[in-house]
């Protein structure tokens, strides 16, 4: 574990708490894409199957995995059941098959081993890279976002961004260790946040509302 990854994981954790806080305090999931949230459930469930295969890493690792699975399911419960009336499917229109199809094909071709668990692991990495697209698409459509929602996205973006220095650090400290699947997907994932961060830094952090130019 290095500092980049620790802060990244804590930022990931923070993003989930920010999202929960947003939903609970406003009693609304307005502005949140349930499609993106559903994709995260799929990401965590397919990636963390190793919880059940006896490949124990650490208490930290297992607790985080369980938390990510549990909290993502809880968010779906909040959006689909508890605050269902505040969920507007008419603006959450990104087609999931555009994401699920290509990522499934990629996982079948590019994986470390053609086994059930390894293909699912690769799938979860590719899926995570693009899971934010329905959310960003929704933001683009509505052209604005609540400030708290932008903090959620910023924390997620920071989490992904920090994994890159983590890999560089690991490359130099662990004898050239590199995970090409995670690195390529991670760079793509981070790149998706560039536009968002531009508006976040120039507007939200200056105290203005998040609004996209018309």
């Amino acid at each position: 574990m290095n500092l980049f990854r620790l802060v990244a994981d804590l930022s990931h954790l923070a993003s989930i708490f920010i999202l929960l806080h947003k939903i609970q305090t406003t009693r609304s999931c307005r502005g949140i894409s349930i499609k993106t949230q559903l994709l995260y459930v799929l990401v965590f469930v397919t990636r963390y199957l190793d919880l059940f295969t006896g490949d124990f890493v650490s208490i930290y690792n297992s607790v985080m995995k369980l938390f990510f699975i549990g909290s993502s399911c809880y968010i779906i419960y909040l959006m689909r059941i508890k605050y269902k009336p505040t969920n507007d499917p008419s603006i959450d229109t990104f087609r999931l098959e555009y994401i699920l199809g290509p990522t499934a094909v990629l996982a079948l071709i590019f994986n470390y081993k053609f086994t059930f668990l390894e293909v699912l692991w690769a799938f979860s990495i590719y899926l995570e890279a693009v899971a934010i697209l329905p959310q960003l698409f929704m933001l683009q459509r509505t052209g604005e976002a609540e400030t708290i929602t932008t903090h959620y996205l910023a924390a997620l973006g920071i989490y992904r961004g920090l994994y890159i220095p983590n890999w560089i650090y690991r490359y130099f400290t662990e004898g050239g260790a590199i995970d090409p699947i995670a690195v390529v997907a991670g760079i793509v994932q981070t790149a998706l946040y560039v536009d968002f961060f531009y508006v976040y830094f120039t507007k939200v952090l200056q105290g203005q509302k998040f609004e996209l130019p018309a």
């Binding site: 574990m1 990854r5 994981d9 990931h12 190793d50 490949d55 890493v57 650490s58 690792n61 985080m64 995995k65 990510f68 470390y112 692991w121 994994y163 690991r170 662990e174 004898g175 050239g176 260790a177 590199i178 995970d179 090409p180 699947i181 995670a182």
Partner: peptide, 10 residues
């Protein structure tokens, strides 16, 4: 170069 999956990453 050691290419592979680091099993400890989330």
């Amino acid at each position: 170069l050691v290419s592979g999956k680091p099993k400890d990453e989330l």
